[in-house]
Design a protein around this nucleic acid. Structure first.
Lengths: 195, 195
DNA sequence: CTCGTTTCCAACGTTTGCGTTGGAAAGAGG
DNA sequence: CCTCTTTCCAACGCAAACGTTGGAAACGAG
């Protein structure tokens, strides 16, 4: 069999996403990642230089993915509620990114390296919101950056404190998820409503 | 010096809150808790029966604290925006509870024991929201339980993903915190606004 | 086919944290 | 005092994860 360096790296990354998302930086072991990827752990150190570095790498990858999966141009033409609903869906279908983000927020806050790329992604969202304000489609009573963040919070908090969600709204059956999603959409519209 | 069993337990609990909130269940060691409390780690095992059990205990304690610190009777008479602002303040001044909740959400979801007490606390909030709806002070377009949760999300997401907040809205100076708080208050009012 | 390079892994030493144990020191009751 | 109970801790064995190393196996250029 021929060498498959890229394939090996990719398998390590995939395993790392899954493990880190599930167990967090501290709960994850390099050994288990290597095992899941079907390689020796030395490969992980050699390719990615340790746990912390690997974590950053996969988080960056996932951020790029979500930027492609839930794009937005301008809230002058796109509905904020729809957008919030799509974000909710993404969190539900692909919990990895949001979990990684929250692990990072808890474990690594204040020492997050290389914020340039993510900052650009969020800048786009914020600009889309500004655009909506300038065209009168979105309220000006909340600054665009804050409003963007708050819309994301409506979609994200559910997975951040699932125990609380469960105690307040009941177990997340398929039907309950639909209700939650509808609430998020409606709430985002109410938040951004123009006059 | 006389025995001070209660004092010892209390010091362990206090140290545990601080350590768990900062480092999470996996990042925290019983040894460090014991060290910070000035006792031997055997005391921790003897009094609290292990790491997981201690975590639950201190989380329960903190939940009881917040229920007393940010009370609410009915949103028929109290303003939802003010309430959201106070929750934001609490998260800012006492980050322990919200961090513990989020660690639990990430590390222990699905295996949270003894939900009865917390469920009651959240039931009160939800009832206060229902009351607001019945008196026409709060919109009926979102169910009370979901609306309650969404208001909490506005106040909570900031600390859940501080990196994201920073990238969108800038570093959390005193002034920026004031802006964020104002945005939360305004957003909660828009969410709940009646007609 | 041969030699140098790259990819890979089994095995190792070290550290760290868990949870336990055996027994010392402090108090309480007679 | 003496004895019995409770609180406390130093020290231990065990297990797991870290990060490294020495060398084998696969490739490819000449």
């Amino acid at each position: 069999m021929a060498w498959d360096t890229e394939g090996t790296k990719r398998r390590i990354r995939e395993a790392a996403v899954s493990e880190f998302a599930r167990f967090g930086p501290d709960g994850t072991t390099i050994e288990r990642i290597a095992g899941a990827a079907g390689v020796n752990k030395e490969r992980v150190y050699n390719y990615f230089g340790g746990k912390r570095s690997l974590f950053s790498t996969v988080l960056r990858d996932e951020l790029a993915k979500v930027a492609r999966a839930v794009p937005v141009e301008s809230f002058a033409t796109e509905d904020v509620g729809d957008y919030a609903g799509r974000v909710y869906d993404y969190h539900r279908e692909r919990p990895e990114l949001t979990r990684l983000l929250r692990w990072e927020g808890l474990a690594f806050d204040g020492e997050v390296p290389d914020e340039e790329l993510p900052r650009r992604y969020y800048g786009y969202k914020s600009a889309a919101m500004s655009d909506g304000q300038e065209h009168g489609a979105v309220t000006r009573s909340i600054d665009a950056d804050h409003l963007t963040f708050l819309v994301l919070s409506l979609a994200g908090w559910w997975s951040a404190v699932p125990q609380v969600a469960r105690m307040l709204a009941g177990p997340p059956t398929e039907q309950e998820h639909a209700r939650r999603r509808a609430a998020v959409v409606e709430a985002a519209r109410r938040l951004a409503r123009s006059p």
